[in-house]
């Protein structure tokens, strides 16, 4: 029987109090954004934010708990923008949103950083110490190598393929330093918004597999902003080393996604982007549950190992109260299905 897992890929909105304290401590300008060597006062604020994120997830009853990525000023570009071999350029648009991040210009070898591992370690400690955490386990979040390379500017490595491979090696090194985790989410929105050129699909899937191979955890390759192209979808199922491909059932044309799974099969597990990470309207758990059953019924398979119930994007787009409501909706939907 398919196990239903309520989870999110992270990147939560800061609580309102932290929006204020951190903007006072850090400032509003480009030069004030996180560099990865923040001082003690700022570290303390983020520690509190992390604890609140873990509590939010346990309160909601999610099956996987993420660190929440409160420090990721540059969204999924964060692992590069805090890296020593990266210079941050201008502020550039984050996908098709009214959001911006610093352009990471990679100017030297991407050696080991450990920034994300430290965060995850702290989240793991919080989870281990928390009451009522018995049913929840730790999930890690990283950008996928294709999207991270897409969001960055390469001023050091050879061509695009070299750069994707280098970013993948870097991310694999980071994963190797992670504490034990049950699931690894690799966020790959660029696979939809700016897919690899015809014939270059395997470069992207090889890069993803490099990162996926660095962990024993279940790997979810989460896509966003609509359906994947069919050829790329087929490559991802076969070659990316993903236990689950994450599919956006909110944005774009759902029928295209159904067509992909019917035509090309699916990974052993699936992640379904079911609640809208970019709209304050909170979905009813019953509706979410129905969508899960509907989608599973479209797929010509006996069943999946797991179906992850997730939002279709990161949740930082939302006001804090609605982000919490979305966590609740996901956990409640998984309950409905049990």
């Amino acid at each position: 029987m398919t196990q239903r897992v309520a989870a999110t890929p992270g990147l939560y909105p800061l609580p309102d109090w932290a929006k204020e304290t951190l903007s006072e401590l850090k400032g509003h300008q480009k030069g004030d954004l996180l560099s990865g060597d923040e001082g003690e006062a700022i570290v303390e604020q983020y520690d509190e934010v992390r604890a609140e994120f873990v509590d939010d997830q346990l309160d909601a009853g999610l099956d996987r708990v993420v660190e929440g990525q409160g420090r990721w000023d540059d969204m999924i570009a964060h692992p590069l923008t805090v890296h020593d071999s990266v210079e941050t350029g201008g502020i550039v648009r984050y996908y098709d949103n009214n959001n911006f991040y610093r352009d990471p210009r990679v100017v030297d070898d991407l050696d080991f950083s450990g920034d994300v591992a430290r965060e995850l370690e702290a989240a793991g400690d919080l989870l281990a110490d928390a009451d009522g955490a018995a049913d929840a386990s730790l999930a890690a979040t990283l950008p996928g190598p294709y999207s991270l390379a897409d969001l960055a500017t390469n001023e050091h490595y050879g061509d695009e393929a070299d750069f994707q491979a280098a970013v993948a090696e870097f991310l694999a090194g980071e994963v190797a330093a992670f504490p034990d985790h049950e699931t690894l989410f690799l966020l790959e929105p660029s696979l939809v918004t700016n897919p690899p050129a015809e014939g270059a699909e395997s470069t992207a899937t090889d890069a993803i597999a490099t990162v996926a191979d660095a962990t024993d955890a279940d790997v979810v390759v989460q896509t966003s902003y609509g359906a994947l192209g069919e050829k790329l979808y087929a490559h991802l199922v076969d070659e990316a080393g993903a236990d689950a491909l994450g599919l956006d059932l909110v944005a774009g044309d759902r029928d295209d996604t159904v067509y992909n799974v019917q035509e090309f099969g699916a990974t052993d597990s699936l992640a379904l982007g079911l609640v809208d990470g970019q709209n304050t309207l909170v979905e009813e758990p019953e509706t979410v549950a129905e969508r899960v059953e509907w989608f599973e019924s479209q797929v010509p398979a006996e069943g999946f190992d797991r179906t992850y119930l997730t939002p279709n994007t990161e949740l930082f787009y939302l006001p804090a109260n609605k982000y919490r409501a979305k966590l609740n909706a996901l956990a409640a939907a998984a309950e409905v299905l049990d």
Partner: peptide, 17 residues
């Protein structure tokens, strides 16, 4: 209004619904 949302860094906007 539900509260501020991020535009970039610590710049927020009270995006209404």
């Amino acid at each position: 209004f539900n509260g501020p949302v991020k535009v970039w860094g610590h710049n927020y906007f009270d995006k209404p619904s």
